[in-house]
Amino acid sequence: MYSPRLHIAIMEPSMIIFEGLQTIICHSSLDCRVSRVERLEELTEMMKHTPVEILIANPMQFVNLEKEVKKLRKSYPTLAIAGIDFGIIHRQSMLTDISFTLYDTPEHIIHSLTRLQEKSQHPEEEKEENNHLSPREIEVLTCLVSGMLNKEIADQLHISIHTVVRHRKNITLKTGIRSQSGLTIYAISKKIVSIEDIEL
């Protein structure tokens, strides 16, 4: 399933403002999708299964929820928050990374969001263009398709189980294949292992 890497959630009760922001974002060069959330709990719930990189919020929504917002930021350190400045809160809120007003030009808003996105990007993502497996990942994959467990792979390659898990995650990210039998087919079509090595 293709979904853009950037996911922006907008938490703003006014439908007019939400639609306006959504239109500006969708017509910009940002490759992203936009969701609307009504309350902070809804965002927390959403983030359990879908990552959100940027939250655009009406800071009034955070009133009396400062603790919850901080907790959310702690659980998701890469989440960036942009506040909509209505001129009510004079000082830059501690809870937001940037803010913009409704009278800013679309270019200005998109520019701020783009910078925010760069900031929130995971360092590993730079490598993402390259879908080739690294030599280490190939070793892990070879062990995997021969039916070894994480613990056995760790022992064989003299690495920690934690590292094995990380390699497995990257293999799935790069190949798009999650099941072991699927990875076996992948390994054979890429001639990483020969079919004789596999018990049919």
């Binding site: 190949t175 798009g176 999650r178 099941s179 699927g182 087919i185 992948y186 079509s189």
Partner: peptide
Amino acid sequence: ELKLQDLKNLLLMHVD
């Protein structure tokens, strides 16, 4: 649905 996705990805990206 997970394995179904694998199957799609194998056909679209990997199997020669």
